[in-house]
């Protein structure tokens, strides 16, 4: 197992370099003058432009710029924005909020998704099954920002149950509805995934064995069937954590949450290349590490899986 993890970590290096280079190249090759509008209404003084060009090696070819950037990144230096703020500091402020939001989303999608999937699988055809089927269809087909706006307007503006706009240091309670919105797509997916897994396992031979042993139905379903059915679901939830962090941009925009999504959104609008690359690089790292973690988790959940 140790050797497997080491191998996977080594494999991460080329993947990491490849993805970050693409991001870097895309961001810095963006058309438009990066200094446009940086100095108020007038164009920037030549002295300022020279200083910045020097600092970001803008005269060098992109590939050289990239490796110079990568070198700094490895020492933990995310660079500075044009206005001189440390990108590292910006990320430090925004990251915890997004992690919190993603965790809330993960818990909501896990609990509701699994409950809906398991219940419909056990009950079989009927009202509940149709209800869940229809609502998952709606959640899957309606874009997240539409779900977000509708909930914001109905719950926040009309019913005034929640704050339509979340403050800078939100509590878990405030993040409940945004978390629901963020996790809604995956929730629908989890409901279907767990339903299918339960249906498959229902007829499995080992379930028949468990029944033949005279175990209580509660134990047959709750231990034997559930434990097997949750393997794909839990691994999906693990992978989803990485994806949710990236997907938070829209939700954070709708609910005015000052997280990573907000940061990246602003940075793109202002053509702050350093910030964009820094944040996206971080998201890539988290995603890659989560995937590794999920593979390890998978082996822990299913003893038949052996790496190495």
């Amino acid at each position: 197992m140790g050797r497997y993890i080491l191998r996977r970590l080594l494999q991460l290096i080329p993947v990491f370099i490849g993805t970050t280079f693409i991001i870097y190249a895309l961001v810095w090759a963006l058309p438009g003058n990066p200094f446009a509008g940086k100095c108020g209404a007038r164009s920037c003084p030549q002295a300022y432009i020279d200083k910045m060009t020097e600092q970001y090696n803008l005269n060098e070819p992109v590939i050289v710029q990239y490796f110079l950037y990568l070198g700094k990144l490895l020492t933990g230096n995310f660079g500075e924005t044009y206005s001189g703020t440390e990108v590292g500091t910006l990320i430090q402020n925004a990251y915890p909020v997004t992690v919190k939001l993603a965790l809330v989303a993960l818990i909501i999608e896990g609990v509701i998704g699994i409950a809906a999937g398991v219940l419909t699988a056990l009950r079989g055809k009927g009202f509940l099954d149709n209800l869940v089927l229809a609502s998952t269809l709606v959640l899957i087909s309606v874009p997240v920002f539409v779900t977000g706006f509708i909930l914001q307007i109905v719950l926040g503006v009309q019913l005034e149950w929640i704050q339509p706009s979340v403050g800078s240091d939100p509590t878990i309670g405030e993040l409940f509805v945004p978390g629901f919105v963020l996790g809604s797509l995956s929730m629908a997916y989890i409901a279907r995934l767990s339903r299918t897994a339960m249906m498959e396992n229902k007829r499995a031979d080992y379930i028949r064995t468990a029944t033949a042993k005279g175990l209580a139905p509660r134990r047959v379903v709750g231990i034997h069937m559930l434990r097997n059915s949750l393997i794909p679901v839990i691994t999906f939830i693990g992978t989803d954590f990485g994806a949710l962090m990236g997907g938070a941009i829209v939700t954070e925009g709708v609910f005015n949450i000052h997280g990573i999504g907000g940061l990246i959104f602003e940075a793109i609008m202002q053509q702050e290349g350093t910030t964009v690359t820094g944040v996206v690089t971080l998201l890539v790292i988290v995603y890659l590490l989560m995937n590794l973690l999920v593979d390890i988790l998978y082996a822990a959940l299913d003893p038949r899986i052996r790496y190495d």
Binding site: A204, D205, Y206, R208, T209, A210, T211, A212, K213, G214, L215, A216, H224, R227, N228, I231, L301, D302, P303, R304
Partner: peptide, 24 residues
């Protein structure tokens, strides 16, 4: 009937690999 299963009557199956729960 559940009381009798295991305690009074028991059954073994053809394919023990699929009849045993893989994760326990």
């Amino acid at each position: 009937r559940r009381e009798l299963r295991g305690e009074n009557m028991a059954m073994i199956f053809q394919d023990a690999l699929s009849a045993l729960n893989p994760v326990f």
